Simulated scan of single mutants.
Amino acid sequence: MKKIICIISILIVSICKSQSIVPLYGSGHAGENGYYYKDLDNFLNQYEGTWLYTFGNTSLKIVLVKKVKMPFTSITGTYYRDVLVGEYEYYENGVLKINTLSNLNVNHNKFYSYNLSGKNRINKEIYPKCIDCAVNEYRIKLEYSEPAYKDYQGFDSYMLIRTVTENGVAKLKLSFIEGNMRGFKIPNNNIDDIIEITATYKIPFGEYVLIKQ
Rank of each mutant, 00 (worst) to 15 (best):
V68N: 04
V68E: 06
M70V: 12
N99E: 02
N188L: 09
N105T: 06
Y114K: 08
K171Q: 07
K171H: 03
A134G: 13
G168H: 04
N103I: 10
N103A: 12
V83T: 05
Y158N: 05
Y144G: 00
G183C: 03
A148Q: 11
R139D: 01
Y79Q: 04
N93E: 06
R182K: 15
S74M: 10
Y91T: 12
D151Y: 05
E178H: 04
I161M: 13
T198Q: 10
D132A: 14
N120G: 11
E196C: 02
D82H: 00
E92H: 08
L84D: 00
V135A: 12
Y114T: 06
V106A: 03
S175C: 13
T100N: 07
F184R: 12
L84F: 00
E137V: 01
G168L: 03
D193K: 15
C133S: 01
F176S: 04
K66P: 08
P147T: 09
F72G: 06
S157D: 06
G154A: 05
V135I: 12
Y127D: 15
I197K: 15
K119G: 07
N105G: 14
L172F: 09
T78Y: 10
K129W: 13
I194Y: 06
N180Q: 06
K97P: 11
G154F: 02
S145C: 05
T200K: 14
V65I: 14
K171G: 09
P147W: 12
F176E: 04
N107P: 08
D82S: 01
L174N: 11
I126D: 12
M70K: 04
C130A: 15
E196Q: 09
L116G: 02
I140G: 02
G168V: 11
N167L: 03
R182E: 03
I122W: 06
L160S: 10
S113H: 13
E92F: 06
I131W: 05
N103R: 13
L96P: 06
F184C: 10
G183N: 11
N109W: 09
S145W: 08
K173P: 05
N115E: 12
Y114H: 07
N188T: 13
V85F: 00
Y152Q: 08
S74L: 08
R162E: 15
D82W: 00
R139T: 03
R162K: 07
L160T: 04
N120D: 13
L160I: 05
V85S: 04
E137C: 03
G86R: 01
F72T: 08
Y114S: 02
P147N: 10
K171Y: 00
Q153N: 15
T78C: 07
D151R: 13
P128H: 10
T163N: 13
R162C: 02
D82V: 00
I186H: 01
K185G: 01
E89F: 10
Y112T: 11
Y138L: 13
D192H: 14
S145E: 15
N190D: 15
Y138D: 07
Y88S: 05
D82Y: 01
L172C: 09
I194V: 15
I186Q: 10
N115S: 06
Y80S: 00
M181K: 10
E137L: 08
Y114P: 01
S145G: 13
L104A: 05
V68W: 14
I195P: 15
N167Q: 11
D132K: 15
S117V: 04
G77L: 09
K67C: 04
K129G: 10
V65P: 07
S157C: 14
K150W: 08
K67E: 08
G168N: 11
Y158W: 05
G118H: 00
